[in-house]
Amino acid sequence: MFPFVTTILRALRRGPATRRYPYEVRPPMAGSRGHLVNEPDTCIYCGLCVRRCPAGALAVTREPKSWTLDPYRCILCAYCVEVCPKKCLRMEPSHVRAAS
């Protein structure tokens, strides 16, 4: 009986173990693979990222210059970031919601 009283008191002191999620969001961890962004100024539209992407999420055309990402296909592996010769791709730590 008595150990349980201590457990209750401890639980009351500590409060809930969970976060009140939509109102309280944990900041993303540094280095987390949240979403992919490209710096259009540095990109040379070589298409290397397209050829390497395992999910077929990218499309690049030289004329007109365009680089598009299909966020629904991207599996956030960061392989494109690794192979890009201009290092213009990067992974941002914050996650984006599927429908935004």
Binding site: M29, G31, S32, R33, I75, L76, C77, A78, Y79, E82, M91
Partner: peptide, 22 residues
């Protein structure tokens, strides 16, 4: 949390590469 802090993702660590780690 430790996995996310070290590898960048909770489940799909994607840190293993042919020839080493990423």
């Amino acid at each position: 949390d430790l996995e996310e802090a070290t590898a960048g993702a909770r489940i799909m660590l994607s840190t293993c590469a042919i020839g080493g780690v990423r």
